[in-house]
Structure formats: structure tokens, C-alpha cells
């Protein structure tokens, strides 16, 4: 019997999910930044700013940004690590990586390396990074535990993992408004702006299937991190998990 996993609310064969996610991001890549701004009313910039502020990254550090999409985090990390540091922007999707490269060049950020990689099999030696981040990418990974274990492996002792991801709010009224917005407004905006309703329907569904704050925290601890904490942002609509490899 074939192993299955979730793709939004659908069950699909495990080996098919990666290709399905890839086709979604191929479809939305060129409008990704614009859609992020529209759908989050620009708030995604504040969430990312908070992530950078909490990272404790210093001049000279090595940082890997996984599923780095359009390069927002990589750009901010580059400013922090300076010329003596190194930032690697990675994504499984070539179209997204190409958008990221374009954005960084347009913003005058140079000296960032680009690597197309799968978060479940990271092609770097163990203990090579001071910080690894993944923003709004983990929920699209087929084997999340394997991805977290890989991030743990490539971190130096004392390295910091940052997972910024949609999560669960426990404010009832906010949850109701958010559900209405996610399932009724977001797909329609996707249809109007990016001419792609299905991808934004998937976005709403994949958020609901993603582990909640406590479960994800336990996954991080199970991967070997000595400490993990999370910060709820915008009432828990988004959570930042921070793991430290002690």
C-alpha cells in the first residue's frame, strides 16, 4: 500500500507531494511578493523583522535561509553578518530562487550565495552554520521531522534555528474572522491578482494542516535541540519557533 501525506485537505501519495508543491510555487513565483503584501496587509514584513531581531546573529556568522523565496530574510541577514559573514539563500524551487536572486540584485544586495536544495537532504557538512532559518516553508515540506533533523545537523553547537510559520490562534473571534478571510477572500484575491485561485486555496488548507505551536516545539526538541521556545505573532496567526543547539 502506498504511503500518503496531506496536500492541503487532500491525501496524496507521499512521493507526489513535492512535485505538487513545486508546481504551485512555479505558478505563483512572479507574483509572490505582491501577493504576500496584499494578503497580509504588509504584516509579513514585521514578522520577518521580528525574526531577524530575535536571531542573535553577529558579524562574521554563517546563515542558511531555507525556502528563502524572494530573499527578504537573506537580505536582512546579510546586513547583520557583514562582509566577513556568509548568507546562503536556498529554495527547492528554481523559479522562486530566480525571483529571490532578482530581488536581491535589484535591492543592491550582493555576496549572497544561491543553492537549490531540498530541506530534507541539505547538501552541507555537519556543524557549518551559526543560524538556519525557514520562513513560511516548513508546512510545504513532506517530512517535517527529517527537515528539522537536517537543520539540527548542519548547525554548529550553539547554533540557532528559526522557524517562522503560520500557526493556530486561540482567540475565538480572531479565528472566525481568519477562517472566513482564508477560505473566502484569499482564494478570490489569488484569482484576481495572480490568476491562480487553487494555489491560494491550498495555502489556506495547508495552514490548517500544519502542527500547532506546542506540537512543533516538541518536534524541534525531539530533533535534538536543547532549548526551544516560540513567540506568537498577530495573536498566534503566525508563530516564531527558536531552537538552540546546546
Amino acid at each position: 500500500m502506498k504511503k500518503t501525506t496531506h496536500f492541503g485537505f487532500k491525501d496524496v501519495a507521499t512521493e507526489d507531494k513535492q512535485g505538487m508543491v513545486r508546481s504551485i510555487f512555479d505558478s505563483v513565483a512572479s507574483k509572490y511578493n505582491l501577493m504576500n503584501d496584499v494578503l497580509s496587509f504588509g504584516t509579513h514584513r514585521l514578522w520577518k523583522h521580528y525574526t531577524i531581531a530575535t536571531s542573535n546573529v553577529k558579524v562574521g556568522d554563517k546563515v542558511l535561509d531555507i525556502a528563502g523565496g524572494t530573499g527578504d530574510l537573506a537580505r536582512a541577514f546579510k546586513k547583520k553578518v557583514g562582509y566577513s559573514g556568509q548568507v546562503v539563500l536556498s529554495d527547492i524551487n528554481a523559479a522562486m530562487l530566480s525571483e529571490g536572486r532578482k530581488n536581491l540584485i535589484n535591492n543592491g544586495t550582493t555576496d549572497v550565495q544561491f543553492v537549490q536544495l531540498n530541506g530534507e537532504q541539505i547538501p552541507f557538512v555537519s556543524g557549518s552554520f551559526d543560524c538556519v532559518s525557514i520562513a513560511f516553508g516548513l508546512r510545504n515540506v513532506t517530512d517535517k521531522d527529517q527537515c528539522i533533523r537536517e537543520m539540527y545537523r548542519i548547525l554548529k553547537p550553539g547554533g540557532c534555528l528559526l522557524i517562522l510559520e503560520f500557526s493556530k490562534t486561540d482567540i475565538v473571534l480572531l479565528e472566525k474572522c481568519y477562517d472566513f478571510y482564508s477560505f473566502n477572500v484569499m482564494p478570490q484575491l489569488g484569482k484576481i491578482i495572480a490568476n491562480d485561485e487553487d494555489s491560494y486555496q491550498y495555502l489556506a488548507e495547508s495552514i490548517r494542516k500544519h502542527p500547532n505551536q506546542e506540537i512543533l516545539k516538541q518536534m524541534v526538541l525531539d530533533a535534538g535541540f536543547g532549548a526551544c521556545e516560540y513567540h506568537n505573532l498577530s495573536g498566534g496567526i503566525v508563530a516564531l519557533h527558536k531552537g538552540i543547539k546546546i
Binding site: N56, K58, D130, K156, P157, G158, G159, C160, G226, A227, C228, E229, K242, I244, K245, I246
Partner: peptide
Amino acid sequence: VNFVCTNERIFVTNNTDA
């Protein structure tokens, strides 16, 4: 708070159950 001292820096975390 917990001060986690590692990698030549100090992390301040609110996860005091560690």
C-alpha cells in the same frame, strides 16, 4: 528568563521550563 550561553553569545529565552 533563561540565559543560554553558547557559541560566544547569550540567548535570552522565556522557556524557563528547560
